[in-house]
Measured scan of single mutants.
Amino acid sequence: DETGKFLVLALYDYQEKSPREVTMKKGDILTLLNSTNKDWWKVEVNGRQGFVPAAYVKFL
């Protein structure tokens, strides 16, 4: 149950560059965990948590 969690859509592919980031593919649906930083949002994708560039995702 994803109640209270926001979902975001990956607009572009992103390859993680550090262990704190996660890789996503364009079209992936991600669970948004934290968006307090304007540049990097914490998400969960494929069972992994990490950061992606905020400009690469949008709210569903």
Rank of each mutant, 00 (worst) to 15 (best):
Q15P: 06
A54G: 04
L11D: 03
P19D: 15
K17R: 13
P53K: 03
E44R: 07
L32P: 01
D1R: 01
A54N: 03
N37D: 12
K58W: 09
V43G: 00
K25N: 09
P53F: 02
K5H: 15
T36Y: 11
A54K: 07
G47R: 05
V43T: 01
G47Q: 06
N46Q: 11
Y14K: 01
M24R: 00
V45A: 10
S35E: 06
G50T: 02
S35L: 08
F6V: 15
L30S: 02
S18P: 04
K17F: 05
V57M: 05
T36S: 14
D39F: 14
E2T: 15
W40K: 02
T31C: 09
W40D: 01
T3A: 13
V52S: 01
E2V: 14
A54W: 02
D39V: 14
W41Y: 11
T31D: 05
L33Y: 05
L9T: 12
N34V: 07
E2W: 04
A10V: 08
L33I: 13
T31V: 15
W41C: 05
Q15R: 10
D28H: 04
N34G: 07
A55F: 09
F59A: 13
L11V: 09
Y12S: 11
L33V: 14
M24F: 10
D28L: 04
A10P: 01
G50E: 01
G47C: 05
V45S: 12
L11H: 04
K17Q: 15
D39E: 11
N34A: 09
T36D: 15
V57Y: 01
V43W: 00
F6N: 13
F6A: 14
D1N: 14
F6H: 15
K25E: 06
P53E: 01
V43R: 00
E21R: 03
K42H: 12
K26N: 04
Y12I: 10
Y12H: 12
N37S: 09
K26A: 13
L33K: 05
L33H: 06
F51G: 01
D13H: 04
F59W: 10
L32W: 03
R20Q: 15
D39P: 03
F59Y: 12
T23C: 05
A10G: 04
K25F: 08
K38Y: 08
Q15T: 15
K26T: 07
W40F: 08
G4I: 13
L60I: 13
P19F: 10
E44K: 07
V45P: 00
W40T: 02
L33R: 04
G50L: 03
Y12W: 12
V8H: 04
T3V: 15
K17N: 12
K5Y: 11
Y14P: 01
K26Y: 04
D39T: 14
I29T: 07
L7R: 10
E16Q: 14
Y14H: 05
F59Q: 12
K42D: 04
N37C: 08
K25G: 05
E44V: 08
P53C: 03
A55N: 14
S35P: 06
L11M: 11
D28F: 03
Y12Q: 12
R48Q: 08
E16V: 06
K38W: 06
D39A: 11
F59G: 07
E2Y: 05
G4Y: 08
T31I: 14
Y14G: 01
K42T: 07
F51Q: 04
F59P: 13
E21T: 07
V22P: 01
S35N: 12
K58H: 12
N34M: 07
T3R: 04
R48M: 08
A10E: 00
G4K: 14
G27P: 00
T36M: 12
V8L: 15
D13P: 06
Y14C: 02
R20N: 14
Y56I: 06
L32M: 05
Y56V: 06
G27W: 05
P19N: 11
K58V: 15
N34E: 15
L60H: 09
G27F: 04
Q49N: 08
W41K: 02
K38R: 12
W40M: 06
S18F: 06
L9V: 15
V8C: 10
A54L: 02
L32F: 06
D39H: 14
K25M: 11
E21F: 05
T3N: 14
S35D: 13
G4R: 10
S18Q: 08
G4T: 14
T36W: 10
Y14I: 01
E21P: 04
K25C: 08
M24D: 00
K25T: 10
T36P: 04
R20V: 14
E2A: 14
G50F: 04
G47W: 03
G50S: 02
L9R: 08
W40E: 04
L30V: 08
M24P: 00
L11T: 05
F51P: 00
K58Q: 15
P53I: 02
W40S: 03
I29N: 03
Y12P: 00
F59H: 13
L32A: 03
G50R: 01
E2L: 14
T23S: 15
V52R: 00
Y14Q: 00
T36E: 15
R48I: 09
I29F: 06
L60N: 05
K26I: 05
K58E: 14
E21H: 06
F51D: 04
L7V: 09
L32Y: 04
G4M: 11
D28M: 10
V8M: 09
L32K: 01
S35F: 10
V22Y: 03
D1K: 02
D28W: 08
I29E: 05
F6E: 12
E16C: 09
K5V: 10
L33P: 00
G27V: 01
L32R: 01
Y14E: 01
L11A: 07
L11C: 07
T23Y: 04
P53G: 01
T23I: 03
W40P: 00
R20W: 15
K42M: 12
T31R: 10
R20T: 14
K5T: 13
A55Q: 13
K17W: 03
G27L: 02
K38E: 11
E16D: 05
T36L: 10
T23Q: 04
S35G: 12
R20K: 14
E44C: 09
G47V: 02
Q49C: 08
V45D: 03
V43L: 03
S35H: 11
T23D: 04
Y56Q: 06
F51C: 08
P53R: 03
T36R: 10
N34K: 07
D39C: 11
S18A: 08
S18H: 13
K17P: 04
G4V: 13
K58N: 08
A55Y: 09
E44H: 05
K25A: 09
V8A: 11
D13W: 02
A55H: 11
A55E: 13
V8T: 04
S18T: 14
S18E: 10
V43I: 07
G50D: 00
E16Y: 04
N46Y: 08
D13T: 05
T3I: 12
F59M: 15
V22W: 05
E2F: 06
P19Q: 11
P53L: 03
F51M: 09
Y56P: 00
G50Q: 01
T3P: 12
A10K: 01
T23F: 03
A55K: 13
S35A: 15
K5F: 12
N37K: 07
V57W: 01
Y12C: 09
K38C: 08
V57G: 01
V57T: 04
T36H: 14
D1M: 13
V52I: 10
L11R: 06
K5L: 12
P19V: 09
E44P: 00
K58C: 11
N46D: 10
V57I: 09
G50P: 00
T31L: 14
K38I: 10
Y56K: 07
V57D: 00
V52G: 00
S35T: 11
G27D: 06
L30A: 10
Y56W: 07
K17Y: 04
V22E: 00
W40A: 02
K26D: 02
Q15G: 08
N37E: 11
K58A: 14
N37H: 11
V22K: 01
T36V: 11
R48G: 04
P19W: 07
T3S: 15
T3W: 12
L33A: 02
L33M: 08
G4L: 11
R20P: 06
K26R: 13
Q15I: 14
L32G: 03
G27M: 03
I29K: 06
A10Q: 01
L7Y: 15
F6W: 13
A54R: 10
A54Q: 05
P19C: 08
L7T: 09
Q15A: 12
Q49G: 07
S18I: 05
K42P: 01
K38S: 12
E2P: 13
V52N: 00
A10F: 02
A54T: 06
Q15N: 12
